[in-house]
Amino acid sequence: MTSILNLVSLWILPLIIILVLTIGLVKKVPIYEEFTKGAKGGFDVAVRIIPYLVAIIVAISMLRASGAIELLAQILAPVLVKFNIPADILPLMIVRSLSGSGALGIFSDIANSAGPDAYSTKLAAIMLGSSETTFYVLAVYFGAIGITKFRHAVIIGILADLIGIISAVLVCNLMFA
């Protein structure tokens, strides 16, 4: 099953590219011309999202530098112990929605210090693999089209992340505890 999935992962992009270009040629689309026309937008999009990225990444960098995440982890620790959640997972839970590179760094730390057989490593792996960096996604996608009023998108993102964390704990408990 996994090897099939890996194979699909490897082939999906090359197949999409071949398919798109072949259909383009068959339909008599000037593919080189259209490709370069479309590609011009790459620079614009990247530049357009800079202000939104600066806002969100600076705010989150400041939060991480201030030690507020460790503080929150300390406050929450006694509560989580009751639910059989190891304390070293806490920073990951908090950082997951905020920073992709931060979350990956914390996960590597947990995996390296707790070791391959630890419950923490399994739970952290499931948590990291099952969710996205919500605030980065919001900043990039809304930034690219100039939306500044996010409406319910923020609360959905946070709630879905919470549900993800809770179900990760439950599933991990069922399978590996």
Binding site: E34, G38, G41, G42
Partner: peptide, 20 residues
């Protein structure tokens, strides 16, 4: 993001023009 964005936006433009 610039380079990879340019590449995929280019491919997508072709996909759009061909009606895919």
């Amino acid at each position: 993001l610039i380079g990879i964005m340019a590449f995929w936006l280019g491919i997508m433009k072709v996909a759009e023009q061909s009606g895919l």
